[in-house]
Design a protein around this nucleic acid. Sequence first.
DNA 1: TTGTAGGCGTTATCAC
DNA 2: GTGATAACGCCTACAA
Lengths: 335, 335
Amino acid sequence: MNIYDISEKAGVSIATVSRVLNNSPHVSKKTKEKVMAVIDSCGYVPNAFARGLGLNTMKTIGLLCPNAADPYLAQALAYLEQEFRRFHYDCLLSCTGRELDARIQGVELMKTRHVDGMVLMGSTFIEAKDKNNEYIRKAAEKTPVVLLNGSFQCDNVYCVVCDDQRATMEATQYLVDSGRKNILYLYHSKNYSGQKKLNGYRMGLESRNIKPQDSLVQFFTEDKMNVMDVKEHLISLHDKGLVFDAVLTSEDILSVGAVKYARAMKLSIPKALSIVGYNNSSFCLCCEPELTSIDNMLKALCDHCVATMLGVLEEKQMPQKTVFTGELVKRGSTL
Amino acid sequence: MNIYDISEKAGVSIATVSRVLNNSPHVSKKTKEKVMAVIDSCGYVPNAFARGLGLNTMKTIGLLCPNAADPYLAQALAYLEQEFRRFHYDCLLSCTGRELDARIQGVELMKTRHVDGMVLMGSTFIEAKDKNNEYIRKAAEKTPVVLLNGSFQCDNVYCVVCDDQRATMEATQYLVDSGRKNILYLYHSKNYSGQKKLNGYRMGLESRNIKPQDSLVQFFTEDKMNVMDVKEHLISLHDKGLVFDAVLTSEDILSVGAVKYARAMKLSIPKALSIVGYNNSSFCLCCEPELTSIDNMLKALCDHCVATMLGVLEEKQMPQKTVFTGELVKRGSTL
DNA sequence: TTGTAGGCGTTATCAC
DNA sequence: GTGATAACGCCTACAA
């Protein structure tokens, strides 16, 4: 069943059918109704491939997600897809993992499929070594790219970020102002966003005249970023004599590990140990007490990603970078 | 840059270029190399839309997910996408939400886009009223459908499920055998899978000569399925005089609520209250103590969904239904 | 082994 | 307002 069949049954040319389909104003009411009747009775739907070939677009956006199983990125995925769909764009998903090669492949694939645009999700997408981001530059020559939580200066690449540095700084200050002196900082990524958060932590301390100490900054690789490993590591730090009365983390899951540690050591939260997470994810409500966490406005970020992409596709002038401000959501894990 | 440009530069016909592209065996090594050289130097990539039009496929699978933000479904999404990609299929995502209309729309959209197949994710997809599943029947006439965790008898629909009933029954028996008499059952879905789990709970009790009691079965609507509401509800049940020494739930998050309840009431887990969840999700490790939970073999289920779909697409004969067996993962929340 | 030509199902540009 | 016809870029008989 194609446009020729319809045109025959309706006794008009395919051009007219096409016009009806795309409700062009240059069709008489009568023929329009006649054609519509045939279309409906046949349940005819135009062939998306043919249309794609002609228009050189299938209204598709590529969503590149390092890990769809991560609750935070999963939530972002849901927000993005929902919003794009609202504007009649479909989303092609590619879970690229953390490896650079796989990400390059993912982007390549999206180019191959002629997506109208791509969203690179999460701060891990931008590598510290600029050479490793060359493929993004390349892709952006043909296809608009929007970065969710990534910062990258390049033509046709648009960044939508949360000011991680400021949010982390304020959280640090909040901890100090509540009486904490020795704030342990746990983080899991050394990329741009990871650096910003670390900076924020240091700036927060310095703004309160506390000298940052390297021993209070602990890095976890991706594969160690789980509740158990964090707990064990904190116990070993404590056993080595490290003193800390607060834990600030770059990810909620690290904070959950800190909660586990406190329970193992019979430390009361927040009396003996304050804990602050990052992302305000569903993990926060699972803890006892519930986690104070930095909300980085994911819904707003995602909606803005979509709006930016749509703007670019309509050839409007769009801001190269948009910065949202995070918000500390205070719950039971802090004083 | 299209196939004509390449053929011209290489001094061959487009047919030959096409043959090289699809590495047909009927090309001499020499011309193949010559053509390849041109292709590489131009960075030519065949147009996916044109190819799609000709072959009537773009090697795309539609993934229909009620809620990508749900950790369990998010994990499934990641597994499915990864496995499909391994076989060079791309995935189109549609987060349909829980409403029937939206799901119908989602399926409709996938049909419109001529996906090669669809995976309907999660037990919520199949409605109790058979009339409401008519749209799936309709879709399956044209496109193979694989159900992840759904049971549905229909031509060209393939089901990959975990035996929820059996798993729940065994968990119930395990609780009884550890000395529990009053097992509270919390569930969140009345669809096929929800019914099976409920049956399993009842059968488990009866197999140990305990009479199921309606007061010990509590239903939570989707919007009440969160930690806080569950906790409050359990407190109110307790205040009304309901006695229970164990909680079995149809979803881990409900169990997290039970953990919260226990802490609020100063009940020790598992001494005063045993708790068993379902899905063995990341929430299990966040609790103190960690949750015992039913693992329904998600990775295996997803891989099998993909294998089934690929088999169907290769026109192999595939089993209409495959049943995996769940496994109780014992952790600190039970004796 | 290689080339020619027709078809895939649209949309868009012309005439009329 | 409507109809013929040429793109769009690829694949694939069939012919050479």
